[in-house]
Computed example of a mutant assay.
Amino acid sequence: MKPPCYIDLEQARQLLAEMGVELNERQMKRAADRDASGRRKLPFFVDPVDGRLRIEKGTLVRIYREAQIEAENSAKQ
């Protein structure tokens, strides 16, 4: 099993760009910020050491893959 790989906002934005999802810095920040009910669109967390937002790389990729699979399955019905 591979150890987790935590990435920051900019690295997450670059990873998504490599996958064909082009987001600007503001869009990425909005996905990571808490909404009025305290929830985030993506599961970023505050790094306890440096206080920066981070997300696990594999989790981010999995979220997009699951969304794609769900879209494909709903289109076949």
Score class of each variant (00 low, 15 high):
residue 53 L to T: 00
residue 22 E to F: 12
residue 42 L to C: 05
residue 6 Y to M: 15
residue 70 E to I: 06
residue 68 Q to A: 11
residue 30 R to P: 01
residue 32 A to G: 05
residue 2 K to C: 04
residue 35 D to E: 06
residue 53 L to F: 12
residue 4 P to C: 11
residue 75 A to S: 11
residue 44 F to D: 01
residue 17 A to T: 04
residue 1 M to H: 12
residue 68 Q to P: 00
residue 64 Y to T: 02
residue 31 A to C: 14
residue 4 P to H: 12
residue 29 K to L: 10
residue 43 P to G: 10
residue 11 Q to N: 05
residue 59 T to L: 05
residue 46 V to M: 13
residue 15 L to T: 08
residue 42 L to R: 05
residue 40 R to P: 02
residue 62 R to V: 00
residue 6 Y to S: 15
residue 8 D to H: 01
residue 74 S to L: 11
residue 40 R to I: 02
residue 20 G to E: 03
residue 58 G to K: 05
residue 1 M to F: 10
residue 40 R to F: 06
residue 37 S to I: 13
residue 70 E to Y: 05
residue 55 I to P: 05
residue 14 Q to G: 04
residue 28 M to V: 01
residue 35 D to M: 13
residue 50 D to N: 13
residue 46 V to A: 12
residue 34 R to A: 14
residue 5 C to R: 13
residue 18 E to K: 13
residue 74 S to M: 09
residue 40 R to Y: 02
residue 36 A to K: 13
residue 9 L to D: 04
residue 48 P to L: 12
residue 30 R to W: 12
residue 41 K to I: 12
residue 20 G to H: 02
residue 49 V to W: 01
residue 33 D to C: 09
residue 31 A to Y: 11
residue 42 L to I: 11
residue 43 P to W: 06
residue 44 F to N: 01
residue 68 Q to D: 06
residue 55 I to E: 01
residue 12 A to N: 08
residue 34 R to V: 09
residue 33 D to Y: 15
residue 16 L to K: 07
residue 4 P to T: 12
residue 24 N to E: 04
residue 10 E to N: 09
residue 60 L to Q: 05
residue 76 K to Q: 02
residue 48 P to G: 11
residue 50 D to C: 12
residue 22 E to A: 14
residue 57 K to C: 07
residue 11 Q to M: 08
residue 57 K to F: 01
residue 11 Q to I: 02
residue 67 A to T: 00
residue 27 Q to P: 07
residue 31 A to I: 10
residue 29 K to D: 00
residue 44 F to E: 03
residue 50 D to I: 14
residue 13 R to W: 06
